[in-house]
Every structure is written in structure tokens, then in C-alpha cells.
Amino acid sequence: MRFHRAIFFAASLGAAAASATPTFTGVMQTELMMSGPPPGVCGVCHLNGVTTTGTVTTPFGRAVRMNGLMANNDASLRAALTALTMANTDSDGDGCSDIAELKGMPSPTNPNVATDCSAGGDGGTMVMDGGMGGGGAGGGGPTIGPIRYGCGANSVPELMALAAVVALALRARRS
């Protein structure tokens, strides 16, 4: 809700609001000494590359989140990448760690998509267990769907609670 309002007022008042942190791909390139931007660029973390609220839900995106990624905080991304390196996290469960896939030469492979990464990798660490959401410190946890508003988002309990209060009040008045 806050985010939607931020967009509205940023647009209205001339400020530029962004839902993705634009510096993150550059930080990844520098930190991992990658030959180019990560596969899918924003899509490496944001589902389908859509950089709106609640889309940091790719397996790799969840892994960096669970390792402390904070929006607009480059240091938190560096720390998260270090944690993934230490844990040999393999978000897509293809046997190569996320970091190895991203650092892969001549071109990085997508840490969200299981591929035969060993062919092109530069010696990435093989992991034998873990898999999506379960590798080392990288477990991203269950995906939470995008926020929804309105009756379908479950307004029944509050109405029932209010009805109960009204009923109790009326009953107290009668007695």
C-alpha cells in the first residue's frame, strides 16, 4: 500500500520512484567479476523481469533476500552474495552453485534455470544437495503472492467479528 502510494505521489510531485534498485546489477557484475550483466538482468531476482512490488520471487531472488538483501542497499547485496558463496547455494538445484553460474565463462548461466552448467563454468563449486530454496544459507522460503485488495482478499473475518460485537452489544442492552 505504501509502495503504491509512493508511486502515485512520486509521479505527481515529480519524484522518480523505482521498485527495483538500479545499482544492483552493477554491484553483482563488479562483485562477482562477471563478464556482463546477469542473465535476464532484473529478471535474475524479479519474476519475469517485472520490477514491481512483490516480484522478488525467483529462486535466486528469494535466496538473496533471505541472506539479508535490503532495497536500495548495495552493501546488503554484497553481504548476501558473500553468504551465498560461503554456503554454495544452488537455487535451481542443477548441481552448480548460484555464484558459479553467475561467474561462468564465457557467459554466465541463469541460477534460476537448471542447465548443464558444468560445461561452461569456470570451476564453479558443485553442490550435491540443497536445491531450490534449500541450499545452505540460501533457502528463500515459500513464495508469497502479490498483494491483493478488496473483498476477495478476505474481508469476511472482520465483518463476522463486527457482527459479533454488535450482537453482544444488543444482547447486553436487552438484558
Partner: peptide, 8 residues
């Protein structure tokens, strides 16, 4: 309760 899922 006019937003969901509950996690939010």
C-alpha cells in the same frame, strides 16, 4: 482484512 494474503 481488506488486503491479503495474510502475510502482509
Amino acid at each position: 482484512y481488506q488486503l491479503g494474503p495474510d502475510a502482509y
